[in-house]
């Protein structure tokens, strides 16, 4: 039996996807602002952040309305509850992009540091994680969500490598300290975006399976349940 509620849930998903699309664009522009040293892209990131914030408010209200008016159960409840948690993750990604773009505007006029390819890889891998987390949500793809969660380890490793590289540069040449300090903040923000993608993937697994996969160290092994 088709329900009016199904249309409302479909609208909710579309709105979440619209927000995710805006955030993906912000990530792409953020990456360009650093890699292509584009001030225009950095400023565009800042402009888009407002739209993402507005979508956050709209989606929050939509979720509260559906909870109050439809009293959902089972998969409907999981979808709405998880949307309420995914929305702030996306909004936070937008904030991290804004932070990076702000640093890009400071760094771009300065000579580039002699860094390896890690920074580019970090941005690309993080963007890929967010995209795949959103795809997993759209398609209800548990395997893809699990792959996103696993990918976080490689982003963490990249972050640690770049951090070390920047420390080496600063130790070797004090003139790099200002730029390296900004870049340390940049990579920290990329790393946090990857964490947020992981959180989204965890919510996708909850929507699909109804079981939280967060903090596996706190989960009781089945033989001790």
């Amino acid at each position: 039996m088709a329900r009016h509620f199904d249309n409302e849930l479909r609208d909710l998903k579309f709105s979440l996807l619209a927000m995710a699309g805006q955030v993906e664009e912000m990530i792409l522009l953020t990456h360009n602002s650093l890699m292509e040293r584009s001030d225009a892209d950095a400023r565009r990131v800042n402009d888009l952040d407002k739209a993402v914030d507005e979508l956050e408010l709209r989606l929050d209200q939509a979720c509260i309305d559906l909870l109050a008016l439809r009293a959902p159960f089972a998969s409907d409840l999981r979808l709405i509850a998880s949307t309420l948690k995914i929305v702030p993750e996306l909004e936070r990604i937008g904030d991290h992009c804004t932070n990076i773009a702000r640093r890009a505007l400071i760094l771009n006029p300065m000579p580039p540091l002699a860094l390896g390819d890690g920074l580019r890889k970090l941005g690309e891998e993080t963007l890929s994680m967010v995209r795949r987390a959103v795809d997993a949500f759209v398609n209800g793809d548990a395997d893809l969500a699990r792959a996103v969660i696993q990918a976080d380890d490689s982003v963490d490793a990249l972050y640690v490598d770049i951090n070390r590289e920047l420390l080496r540069l600063m130790l070797a040449d004090p003139l790099t300290i200002e730029r390296a300090s900004h870049l340390i903040i940049v990579i920290k923000n990329w790393e946090r975006i990857a964490d947020q993608a992981t959180n989204i993937a965890e919510e996708v697994l909850f929507i699909i399976g109804g079981v939280s996969v967060k903090h596996p160290y706190l989960q009781t092994p089945p033989d001790q349940a």
Partner: peptide, 9 residues
């Protein structure tokens, strides 16, 4: 979350 470092967020 990877190792601690300075952050502006």
């Amino acid at each position: 979350q990877a190792g601690d470092t300075m952050t502006d967020v």
